[in-house]
């Protein structure tokens, strides 16, 4: 098996995650989909690391994880405060525009 298959898998997961972001209304699920996308990227980085025979890809993946952790902390805080004020976790409810 060629390791490129990992990249295909990463691309597929990324696309699924992105589509999920677009389709789902629940802010928490949207967040999860973003995490999925980040993880797909990480998989690609790890695969690249293996392909190129150095550890830089893994370092990037590591940093991605850290950033993802920070993002989750802030994002979930936002969701919680949003839920407190709007009593809903739907991202569509945050729209105040008239149509």
């Amino acid at each position: 098996m060629n390791p490129v298959n990992y990249l295909y898998l990463a691309a597929l997961l990324f696309t699924i995650g992105a589509t999920g972001v677009l389709i789902r209304r629940n802010a928490i699920v949207v967040f999860m989909c973003i995490e999925l996308m980040l993880n797909a990227c990480n998989l690609a980085f790890v695969t690249f690391s293996r392909m190129h025979g150095n550890l830089d890809g893994q370092i990037i993946a590591f940093f991605t994880m850290v950033v993802a952790a920070a993002e989750v902390v802030v994002g979930l805080a936002i969701i919680v405060s949003l839920f407190r004020t709007r009593h809903s976790a739907s991202v569509d409810d945050a729209s105040l525009m008239k149509l």
Binding site: V21, L22, D92, A94, S95, M97, L99
Partner: peptide
């Protein structure tokens, strides 16, 4: 410009 974050996404 409908205010829905998903549309922008």
């Amino acid at each position: 410009q409908n205010g829905f974050a998903r549309s922008y996404a």
